[in-house]
């Protein structure tokens, strides 16, 4: 059996997650030894007409054209991996869903808004079946490798369904709340090894919420730190707005 044909695609995104892959360094060489990379716009100009064993798709769906493109990729792929927040939860592109689409169009394109029809932002799984999720903005290189290994082995990858706090404690960081800053770690699902907090930043919730957050409990926590629950909800909306209406 030949090496699996792997391709990378991007929809609406900053392509920063592709950059993460391109920047894997030595691990990238190991990865390239295992797979046959047939399409990856950021690092090569070739394209491929056949079937993909594994397609990695970055970015969210924001118009009909990208929806169609995603469906085509899905049809041509045995395994589809959504990678990066835009693809897995809509990401920052989702912020526009809280505004009127016409306002969004005119803000960006002025009086030529009609020339660029858009839809509400959607994550990939809101349109097609997704086999693997690599959350994060950007994706964490270690998790990318983990998911790649699962995909090559034909095994499901289970995204941790506990809070970022778990990994943050493993890393023995001083809690951001003790530093007097709000952090979305307590309601955001882990898997990033508390990457941001390790580097002195707060968690922005880029991986999406744990499946069963204790909402009233979380609000009480915020009150005890004299924080406005709306403020946190707004912070959460930076990445998670696209999950609001469709995440049943």
């Amino acid at each position: 059996m030949g090496r699996p044909k792997v391709a990378f695609f991007d929809l609406s995104c900053c392509e920063g997650c592709q950059l993460q892959v391109a920047n894997l360094g030595e691990a990238l060489l190991d990865v390239l030894g295992l797979v046959d990379l047939v399409e990856f716009r950021e690092v090569m100009s070739e394209s491929w007409e056949g079937r993909y064993d594994v397609a990695f798709v970055e970015g969210s769906v924001v118009n009909e054209e990208s929806e169609q493109r995603l469906c085509e990729i899905r049809q041509r792929s045995n395994v589809l991996v959504a990678y990066g927040s835009c693809a897995t939860i809509g990401g920052v592109n989702g912020m526009k869903n809280r505004k009127l689409l016409s306002d969004v169009q005119s803000t960006v394109y002025g009086d030529k808004g009609d020339w660029f029809p858009v839809t509400k932002t959607r994550a990939l799984h809101q349109i097609v079946e997704v086999d693997y999720f690599i959350h994060g903005c950007p994706i964490h290189p270690d998790e990318f490798i983990k998911v790649l290994k699962s995909a090559l082995a034909g095994l499901p990858y289970l995204v941790p369904d506990y809070a970022v706090c778990v990994e943050c404690k493993f890393n023995e960081n001083v809690c951001m709340y003790d530093k007097g800053v709000t952090c979305l770690g307590p309601v955001t699902r882990a898997g990033c090894n508390s990457w941001c907090v390790n580097n002195g930043n707060v968690c922005y919730g880029c991986r999406g919420m744990v499946s069963n957050p204790n909402q009233t409990g979380a609000e009480e926590v915020l009150r005890s730190y004299d924080l406005d629950a709306n403020l946190i909800a707004n912070k959460m909306m930076m990445y998670n707005a696209a999950m609001e209406q469709c995440d049943e």
Partner: peptide, 9 residues
């Protein structure tokens, strides 16, 4: 139970 966030801290 109403207060706990199940964060595992």
């Amino acid at each position: 139970g109403e207060k706990c966030l199940s964060c595992g801290n």
